[in-house]
Simulated assay, not measured.
Amino acid sequence: MAKGNSDLGEQALSKAVEMGLSTQLDSVESLEAEIRTNPGALLQGEVESADIQGQGLVIKGDLRTEELRVQTDGMAIDPIKAAFGNIELTRPTNAAMAAKLTEADIERACNSDYIQQKLQNLEVKLDDRPVQMKIQQVQVSLPGEGRVAIATDILKLDSGEQQHVAFSAVPAVDAQGYQLMLNDVQMEPNNTSEPLTQSLLAAANDLLDLRQFSLSGMTFQVERIDVQKEHMTLQAKAHLKTFPGG
């Protein structure tokens, strides 16, 4: 629910944002929006800021965020529609965004239908020849020291042979802020095929595209990844063409 704003216009807009964003989510544990403006500025279509905080937000069935916060700068909106509790941006606006993901959130995303469809019949190169693979259940842990540990069993479809892949790496983001990269890769002792692991990492670009977490009308660029024991935090700048509730 919206926080205790003193102005009825702020309350109406805050509620509209909460309801609009909720329609884009498969489920949510809690969601609060706070719009800051005043009656005079609102008549001119000006909003001072918006602050959205949520917990347990799920999109696309299995992509879950433990915590999400979005804070915008000043916004230009349609004042007539705003009078009816509807926010429609008259120009795009920028925002700062922070998302916290737990180990379970990341593992759930890796095993989601959305990602698993990309992992079926995945083709990698081994000994300079293409080999089709099927990746089984993926296990993810965040042991600390900035690392993520990944383990899975991979079936080679041509021979039926199964290999166990286990490694840890340091996540980083590319210069554009869209692509997650895995640096300083270290093989675990129970890894049965280092060449397969390296080939799999080389083919992983499409799987590590952070834009899959975007909501409708919003694009974002990740500026920083902070990996701690059992959770990861992404800090990003967002660009909004439309606003939840608009």
Rank of each mutant, 00 (worst) to 15 (best):
T93C: 07
V185Q: 08
L142S: 03
D174S: 11
D158S: 14
I150E: 01
I106L: 15
A98M: 11
K125D: 12
L201Q: 13
M181N: 09
G177E: 02
P92F: 01
A98H: 05
N111A: 12
A109F: 05
K125V: 13
P195E: 10
V185E: 06
M97R: 01
P130T: 08
N121C: 02
A151G: 13
Y114T: 14
C110F: 15
A109N: 03
V185M: 10
K134F: 08
P143V: 09
S141P: 02
E88D: 04
V124F: 02
A95Y: 00
N183D: 15
P79N: 04
I106P: 01
E88Y: 07
N111P: 10
P171S: 10
E145S: 15
Q186P: 06
G144I: 10
S112W: 07
D153Q: 14
S112R: 06
T93A: 06
V185D: 07
T102A: 06
D158C: 03
M187C: 05
A98R: 09
V140H: 02
V124P: 00
I115V: 15
K156V: 13
N121P: 03
M97H: 02
A203C: 11
V165M: 11
R108V: 02
E107W: 02
E103T: 12
D113T: 15
G160T: 06
T93I: 07
Q179N: 08
A109V: 10
A202M: 11
P195D: 12
R108D: 10
S168Y: 05
A99M: 14
S199M: 08
D105K: 04
D113M: 09
I115Y: 04
G177M: 00
E188Q: 14
E103Q: 13
E88M: 08
A99T: 05
A99W: 00
C110Y: 11
V140D: 03
L201E: 11
P92S: 09
Q136C: 04
T93Q: 02
L157E: 07
L155I: 09
A104G: 10
Q162W: 03
I150W: 04
Q137S: 14
P130D: 13
E188V: 05
